[in-house]
Each structure stands twice: as C-alpha cells, then as structure tokens.
C-alpha cells in the first residue's frame, strides 16, 4: 500500500469508558491503515472494541488519545461544520439494527442524507436529481417496488438494503458497516455481503466490523482485535 493510496489511518488510538466506578479500557493503542478501494473486515469477540473503533473512524466518537486521519487530514482538527460535512459526504454508515427513520418511507430514508445538508431552496433545486438517484439505488438493491413502503413493512434484509442505499446516497469515499449481517439470517446476510463485494469491485472502500470470521472472509483483508489491540492482520488471496 503506497502512502498516497492510504485513505484512512489510525495511530495510537486509546479509548476507555467509565462503567460505574470502573474504568474500562476499550482501545489500547490501535494502529491501522485502510487503503483506497480496500474491503477490510475487523473481527473480534464481543467487547473487544471493534464497534468503538469503527465509530471513532467515522467521527461518531472521539478517541481519548491518538490520531485518525482521513486522506491525510486529522479528524481532530476538523471544525464541527467540517465534521458534519465529513459524516454527510465522505462516510456512509450501515448499522446492525438498520436505524431507519420510521416516519419516512423507504425512498425518503434513502435520499435523507442528500436533503440533510441542503437549505429548503437548495433542496428544491436538486430534489429531482436526489429522488432519481435514490430510485436508482433502490433498483440496484432490488427494492424498486418498495420505495413507498414504510420501514416496518419490510423484512430485516430489506431494511438493511435500504440502510445501504442511504449510506451510498451521497457517494461517500468510505463505507463503514457495523455488524451489517448481525441481525439477519445467513441467506439474507450473504445477500448483503454480495452487495458489499459488488460495491468493492466497483471501487468502494469498505470497513466492516463483524464477530463472525466466516463473514469476515468475504473481505479483502481481516484485522483481528483482541483486548483492545490489533492482534492479527491477514490478507485474503
């Protein structure tokens, strides 16, 4: 991996939480680099700190110590406005529990990130483009017919595909997925992983967290996290 192709880099990341009177040290000096176009899986047992790491990489949380750089720029030096733009434009999140807004239909959930950073006038100017883009994504994800359904009318796999559509809406450079198949049966989970593979083949950089090594094997590289440290890195041929 050449220095120029590194998209995301973590150096000496530490994070701890207070649980009652006890301080739980979750990350203990993580060093990590993700190249452009890579599909990286972070595996580890429950409580190993993998979700915390993912949230720090996506600027949803801050490390106690250490540096996260995205395309050479340190996230800690971003202003709050830049952090919001980073979450909106540069990163797409896929969560284990989908986290769709119940009040919006499928199409609205998908184009929500495009709407979020626009003023009313700005949105009126670009809404046709956004709606078409959202429809295209839903078609690609096999949900074209479900555009006007509400999230509660969909199955788990369908909801997760809507969440992927939402994550991809603003064409982010980086897709972060936190146990994306954790709440799905194995056939549906495989369908989600097929989508990730397809996206990765099209050049999408993906960092996925999972506790299941068989799922992790679908990624190009596996990083194993144990006791808050990176224990093992492997590249799958």
């Amino acid at each position: 991996m050449s220095k120029n192709s590194i998209m995301l880099k973590a150096e000496g990341l530490y994070k701890s939480y207070q649980m009652g009177a006890t301080e739980v040290k979750v990350l203990k000096g993580i060093e990590l680099a993700v190249g452009q176009g890579e599909f990286v899986a972070i595996v580890g047992a429950s409580g190993s700190g993998k979700s915390t790491l993912l949230h720090i990489l996506g600027a949803l949380d801050k490390p106690d110590k250490g540096i996260v750089s995205f395309q050479g720029r340190q996230l800690s030096r971003f202003s709050s406005g830049e952090l919001n733009r980073f979450r909106n434009k540069m990163v797409g999140f896929v969560f284990q529990f989908y986290h769709l807004l119940d009040e919006l239909d499928v199409l609205e959930n998908v184009y929500l990130p495009a709407m979020a950073m626009k003023s009313t006038i700005g949105w009126l100017a670009c809404r046709n483009w956004a709606k078409n883009r959202a429809k295209e994504l839903l078609d690609q994800l096999g949900l074209g017919e479900r555009a006007n359904h509400k999230p509660y009318q969909l199955s788990g796999g369908e909801r997760q595909r809507v969440a992927i559509g939402r994550a991809l809406m603003n064409e982010p450079r980086l897709l972060l997925a936190d146990e994306p198949t954790g709440n799905l049966d194995s056939a549906t989970g495989n369908g989600i992983l097929d989508i990730f593979e397809k996206l990765n083949r099209a050049g999408q950089t993906i960092v996925m967290v999972t506790h299941d090594e068989r799922i992790a094997e679908r990624a190009g590289r596996i990083i194993t996290l144990a006791d808050g440290k990176i224990e093992h890195k492997s590249t799958i041929a």
Binding site: G58, L60, S80, G81, N84, R85, F86, R87, N88, K89, F93, H99, L100, L101, L112, P113, A116, M117, R166
Partner: peptide
C-alpha cells in the same frame, strides 16, 4: 433519541 443519532450520523448539526 434514536432519530437524533441517525440524523447526526448523516451529518445533521446540533443547531439543525
């Protein structure tokens, strides 16, 4: 509160 988290994860600011 979940909606607030979702909105923040897609870049919505505190003031919004």
């Amino acid at each position: 509160s979940k909606d607030i988290g979702i909105l923040k994860s897609i870049g919505v600011s505190n003031s919004n």
